[in-house]
Write a protein that binds this DNA or RNA. Structure first.
Length: 830
RNA sequence: GCCGAGGUGGCGGAAUUGGUAGACGCGCGAGACUUAAAAUCUCGUGGUGGCAGCACCGUAAGGGUUCGAUUCCCUUCCUCGGCACCA
């Protein structure tokens, strides 16, 4: 008998499957509807595939194989997120030009994916840095540009001094660069931005679409990120100025009579007006404000938030007028106020906002209570309540007061109801080499001119010197022969935009391109969209909750508005994977020397064992430490399967066995595995298969006649098929053997992976007998093996005669008998 | 601080319209095979007590509802993840 040696069979099947085109995408039909199953494509780093990748891609492969067997036409593609900061940093670290580095990494990733037996249709592969792909990224960008969703602004942006580039808010995690961990500082730079905020409401409300099946946690994160709040914008006139007002956003207009100061962010235009003397204030004040502003601008976001525990600030010397009662209010500047939110100014109501309270205590501002409740001598009262000291509004409840005050202000043009979002517009430029060039040209006469569609792509030149300059300009700016072009509109000398797009640009729409990867006329045809989109199953890491997943939704909504797409949400079902930790429970990291390399695992145990383990290690969404012994356990199980199935085919006599319980066990297992895969409970699906094998092997399945300890051929076929999504190699090998197919001439039709999924008979998917639990006062005292469907009378009678129960029921009065059919009987005594 | 998820053997975990707690795997113990070891196979494996039949305890802690609670409710503690001056 042959032994199970993974390295002997796995490469063989890889070659056969590729040769016969087993995973080539078919055309969907009415009988075989489409199903689009996608794992988030990776950025191909130099480290190769991580076992965390393996978890995602194995799950998507299990789904793809499962749904193919269930009669769907499956689209299951793979590609490379190869542009952008991560790829470029990896290249710089390894002193290799990004384009060379990336192609080497892709080759390695692809080798590893093939090794794992992932059933991708490689004919649809592309990388975001391929000119034939980014041509269309640029094309789509121009569509956004034409729609007015792209604009340039001189704004203080997140600046990573280490990567020497601007970052999006989403990339400045906790004040640190998402990629390198350096503290992010602010820098004023002219940037391209995408007007994602104009889609804020739709990005928010469409999350509640009932057809969207997303993890609630990710939905919540996106909602919080968008951060919609309703309130009132109140205009405070600046004293000593004709036109200037300070507009303040507040959700608590009911506290307006409690305002004892205004605080401006250092970035606020009024502060600038003060400093350049457009507004008159005493020179001493001006000096102090200047110092303060300069100081806070030098701070990184991190420092600003840390130091903010004690709320610093200086009085500007300037006053404003409270529109509700014409009171004179001092204007301060303080860096706890965020420049980009709600106009960059707040009204300070110390009695009813803890931050304002802290600020007021520190700077000796008046604390004036205007809502009943709490003890404002000790801390702010932030709850709602009845208004006091509020003129004509006194006596109103907060909610009503907000409406009344909003009406009052609106009527007089002193304010208006407003909505504010935490989400900002998306900083879309990077001062780096490795990204899609903007298809824009700066002409002195015509301004910004888009590159004509027929001139796309604007190719990224191959540069010897590609490292970031740190001047705030991309390395491309130094390449004169690339920068200098003629203006497409007037023909005069002009220059290309030299910033590049962030890596999110390519990943915003790659899932669309997979449906139509070869299209040279359009990014994607309408036909292909109707055929394959939206994505039915999208699997990936939860770390993309507010990055890729939000950006991709934004672009899809824009394309919908442009008539390019007929759906509004790209990903119907989303499933986030849990991180795979190292064996020591820490994160896998090169510096800890605890990284598990899939190549080593495959070498030692085979790809099937690795795949099986990754699906078996625990619930899919959960963080779980790696266990090499766990892999070994899965390899042992595969060995058992190998032996059992090999034995089954050499023993024809067992074919005829019709042991009822064994057939029932098989049907139960089919049902369990089917349901579990649908519910993403891969671990319990595999456990059910192991249990089946164990019970067959140990002959515990209550059969008397024969076949004890061995599989019938029908059982063997079913077992192989149920196992095939998880372990495609060994099941294919055994399938060929058990059917005595000629292995020297493999035919596509003979593959186990094209065999339909086993059906289960609901009537057979139960046991014939059931264990009925006998309790006294809820405590387990006995068990009985009875026919399913026994009546209360039968069960009770049998239970009363149980010898074990005797001592518990003696001299006791039975007050109640609780009976749950096929489950339990419980005697309640006094 | 706020929000979300969670807390079950030595470990990863299973079981919840309330009904046998610990499936499956790892580890561990014993045995078989072997000169021996590894591998493999068989049996055992929540804790305490008992030769045993068995009894009691046990799902973070405390309380409640119930014939019966890992599951439902309240209080407290802890872990992980996200957000973090958003006015």
């Amino acid at each position: 008998m042959d032994k199970y040696i993974p390295s002997k069979i796995e490469p063989k099947w890889q070659r056969w499957w590729e040769r016969v085109g087993l995973y080539r995408t078919m055309e969907p039909t009415a009988e075989k509807p489409k199903l689009y199953c996608l794992g988030m494509f990776p950025y191909p780093s130099g480290a190769g595939l991580h076992v965390g990748h393996v978890r995602i891609y194995t799950a998507s492969d299990v789904l793809a194989r499962f749904f193919r067997a269930r009669g769907y036409t499956v689209l299951h593609p793979m590609g490379w997120d190869a542009f952008g900061l991560p790829a470029e940093n990896d290249a710089i670290r390894n002193r290799q030009n990004p384009s060379d580095r990336v192609s080497g990494n892709i080759k390695n990733f692809k080798r590893q994916m093939k090794m794992l037996g992932l059933s991708y249709d490689w004919s649809r592969e592309f990388a975001t840095c391929d000119p034939s792909y980014y041509r269309w990224t640029q094309w789509l960008f121009l569509k956004l540009y034409e729609k007015g969703l792209v604009y340039q602004a001189e704004i203080p942006i997140n600046w990573c001094p280490s990567c020497r580039t601007g970052l999006a808010d989403e990339e400045a995690v906790g004040g640190k660069c998402d990629r390198c961990g350096a503290a992010v500082t602010k820098k004023d730079m002219k940037q391209w931005l995408l007007r994602i905020t104009s889609y804020a409401d739709r990005l928010l409300y469409d999350l509640d679409d009932s057809s969207l099946d997303w993890p609630p946690g990710i939905v919540k994160m996106q909602k919080d990120w968008i951060g919609r709040s309703e309130g009132v914008e109140i205009n405070f006139a600046v004293l000593g100025s004709e036109r200037e007002t300070i507009n303040v956003f507040t959700t608590r207009a009911d506290t307006i009579f409690g305002v004892t100061a205004l605080v401006l962010a250092p970035e606020h235009p009024i502060v600038a007006a003060l400093l350049n003397s457009k507004l008159q204030v005493p020179d001493s004040r001006k000096e102090e404000v200047k110092k303060y502003v300069e100081n806070s601008r030098r701070k990184s976001d991190l420092e600003r938030t840390e130091l903010a525990k004690q709320k610093s600030g200086v009085f500007t010397g300037c006053f404003a007028v409270n529109p509700i009662n014409s009171e004179k209010i001092p204007v301060w500047v303080g860096d706890y106020v965020i420049g980009a939110y709600g106009g960059g100014a707040v009204m300070v109501v110390p009695a009813h906002d803890q931050r304002d309270y802290d600020f007021a205590r520190r700077h000796n501002l008046e604390i004036r209570q205007v809502v009943k409740g709490g003890n404002v001598q000790e801390s702010a009262y932030e709850g709602r309540g009845i208004l006091i000291n509020s003129g004509e509004f006194s006596g109103l409840e907060s909610g009503k007061a907000i409406e009344a005050i909003a009406d009052w202000l609106e009527k007089r043009g002193l304010g208006r109801r407003a909505v504010s979002y935490k989400m900002r517009d998306w900083v879309f430029s990077r001062q780096r080499y490795w990204g899609e060039p903007f298809p824009l040209i700066h002409c002195e006469r015509c301004g910004v001119v888009p590159v004509p569609y027929e001139d796309l792509p604007v190719k990224l030149p191959y540069l010897k010197s590609y490292e970031p300059t740190g001047t705030g300009e991309s390395p491309l700016a130094a390449v004169e022969e690339w920068v200098n072009v003629k203006c497409p509109r007037c023909g005069r000398p002009a220059g290309r935009e030299t910033d590049t797009m962030p890596n999110w640009a390519g990943s915003c729409w790659y899932f669309l391109r997979f449906a139509d990867p070869g299209n040279s006329k359009l990014p994607f045809s309408k036909d292909s969209m109707a055929k394959w989109l939206p994505v039915d199953w999208y699997l990936g890491g939860a770390e993309h909750a507010v990055l890729h997943l939000l950006y991709a939704r934004f672009w899809v909504k824009v394309f919908y508005d442009l008539g390019l797409l007929s759906f509004k949400e790209p990903f119907v079902r989303l499933r986030g994977v849990g991180i795979v930790l190292a064996e020591d429970g820490r994160k896998m990291s090169k510096s800890w020397h605890n990284v598990v390399n899939p190549d080593d695992v495959v070498r030692d145990y085979g790809a099937d064992a690795l795949r099986l383990y990754e699906m078996f290690m625990g619930p899919w969404g959960q963080v779980i430490p790696w266990s090499t012994r766990g892999v070994a356990g899965c390899a042992r199980f595969l060995n058992k399967v190998w032996d059992l199935v090999t034995e089954a085919c050499s023993n024809e006599a067992r074919e005829v066995v019709e042991a009822d319980e064994r057939i029932r066990l098989m049907h139960r297992t089919i049902k369990k595995v089917t349901k579990d895969i649908e519910n993403f409970s891969f671990n319990t699906a595999i456990a059910a298969l192991m249990e089946w094998v164990n019970r067959v092997k140990s002959g515990k399945s209550r059969i008397k006649n024969s076949c004890q300890g061995a599989l019938s051929r029908e059982e063997a076929r079913t077992l192989l098929k149920l196992l095939s999504p998880f372990a495609p190699y060994i099941t294919e090998e055994l399938w060929q053997k058990i059917n005595a197919f000629n292995q020297n001439d493999f035919e596509k039709e003979k593959s186990i992976h094209l065999v339909p999924w086993p059906q289960y008979d609901l009537k057979l998917a139960t046991t014939k007998k059931v264990t009925i639990v006998v309790q006294v006062n809820g405590k387990l005292r006995d068990k009985m093996e009875l026919e399913r469907g026994s009546t209360k009378e039968e069960v009770e009678k049998l239970a009363r005669h149980s010898a074990r129960l005797k001592k518990y029921l003696e001299r006791k009065e039975i007050k109640r008998v609780i009976f749950v059919p096929d489950k339990l009987v419980n005697f309640v005594t006094s």
